[in-house]
Structures are given as structure tokens and as C-alpha cells.
Design a protein around this nucleic acid. Structure first.
Lengths: 121, 121
DNA sequence: CTCCATAGTTCATTTTTTGAAACTATTGCA
DNA sequence: TGCAATAGTTTCAAAAAATGAACTATGGAG
């Protein structure tokens, strides 16, 4: 994969996007076609509207989504992934694959208890 | 990639690992064979020893690295990626690919200034 | 001219994360 | 005994992120 010579930190710009709370789940909803503010808010409950707005604005600023206002009664807004946004899918796919292969291997809270009481080690 | 039916949040456990400050760069160093505390500390300067310890302990707890103490003078410690840790590489690769394809498209700070002054839009 | 529904914003507060500085622990050599 | 080198830990403060509650804006129906 060749990240060896050149790029400490090359990959960080994406992490600045992905690594805030709710962002992964938000992108998941967008990938699945949930595009309206209220709908996203309900599905991500109990996210606060401020946080949801912050995330959407960041995605918009980074041009991973577009925001379209439809006037009318009631007015509504749709958020759509751009090509760059859709291009994130392989990253999610890789995470998903990793989770399939190794996720069960991750230590859970329950394991710690076991270890402390000597049940496992 | 099929994350459609089943898995809102399936992928989050990884993010809990990747999304703290320094973690990406730390894993980068580990992938490249830098394994000792002092070495990591120097390469990630100005990381604080507390934060470096926190990150290493998290990776250890999640069983993505092992910690081996070598007694002697001076004593030293080595951190090595487990198979599960090495298995993260495709995720980094996907991020790297995305960055190649779309990274230049990400809005930078400088672009904002342009937009505000009307140079671009 | 008030109401409903959507889509937010504002502000004070809490929670979480990060950091800096100073201190501890281990080992063997001089 | 004291020192040098590694690898941390501890404590407290600072900074960043997230939250909750209440408020604003829009526009047509009644």
C-alpha cells in the first residue's frame, strides 16, 4: 500500500472529518438516503440540533455534501453526498471488513471484569 | 460493500480507537517499525508522555499491540502490532487512496478567505 | 394575526480530552 | 551510595467538544 516513504499525516484530513462524535453514524444515514434535517435528527437521537448542524456544516464546508433548500410549506432542506462524499465508501468498507475479521477479538468491558477476577488469565 | 441492512454503528468500535489525537500518527510509526517508548515520543514530539501512555494502553487493551519488557540496563520496552493491529492497514490504505483522489478537492482555510472576498464564487 | 411544521440558532453548562511539570521505578555500574 | 538512562505515573489546569433548553425564522392555512 506504500505509505512508507512519504506521508506521515497524509491521511489526517479525513480523520478531522470522521473523528468527531456522530459523524460516522451521520454518514451512514446519508449513505442510506436519509437526507433531511429532522429525519437525521430523529434517527440519530439524542443528538442535539446544534451538534447535528455543526456536523452538517463541516461536511458541507469540506464539500462532501451539498445543502439544498426547498421553499414551500413547510420548507425543507436536503443534504446529498457529493462524488467526494460517496468516495468515502471504500473507507467504511475497509472498516467493516476489519470489524468482521477482528471485531470479535476486541476486548470488551466485560472482559476486563473477567481478567480482574482471574476468570480468564 | 453491503452495510445497508444490518449495521448502523457496526464500524464505530474502530473509530473509538482511531479518533483520538495522535493515534493515526502513532499507528503510522508502529507500522513503520518504531516500537520503543522514547523513540515514539521523539518522533511524535511534542506529544506528552501521559498522552503517549494513554494511547499505547488503549491499543494494548484493544489488543492491537503487545507490550514487551526487556529487563537490563537500561531496561526497555517494545510495542508490536498484533495480527489485528496489522489488519488495520487496509483502512489506512483506503484513506490514503481517498486522499489521492479527493484530497485536493477538500476546502482549505485559504479557500474560505477567497470566497469571503468574492474572488471565487 | 395566530398556528403549525420545518429547520435551524444561541447561550450557559457539563463532559471529555489534552497538556505541562514534577515526580517514581528499575537496573547495574563506578 | 549515588548516578545515568529508560519508561513511565501523578496531579492539576487548560482547552475543546458536546449537551440541553429555549428561542428565531419562514410561509401558507385558517
Amino acid at each position: 500500500m506504500e505509505m512508507d516513504q512519504s506521508c506521515p499525516g497524509t491521511v489526517e484530513p479525513i480523520l478531522e472529518i470522521l473523528d468527531s462524535k456522530w459523524m460516522i453514524l451521520l454518514l451512514y444515514e446519508l449513505f442510506n438516503g436519509n437526507r433531511r434535517f429532522g429525519e437525521l435528527r430523529r434517527r440519530l437521537h439524542p443528538i442535539s440540533p446544534k451538534t447535528l448542524t455543526d456536523r452538517l456544516r463541516l461536511l458541507e464546508e469540506k464539500r462532501l455534501i451539498t445543502r439544498t433548500l426547498y421553499p414551500g410549506v413547510p420548507l425543507h432542506v436536503e443534504y446529498d453526498l457529493t462524488v467526494a462524499g460517496q468516495g468515502l465508501q471504500p473507507i467504511f468498507a475497509a472498516m467493516w471488513t476489519w470489524t468482521q475479521e477482528y471485531g470479535a477479538y476486541l476486548r470488551k468491558e466485560s472482559d476486563k471484569a473477567e481478567e480482574e477476577t482471574g476468570t480468564v488469565m
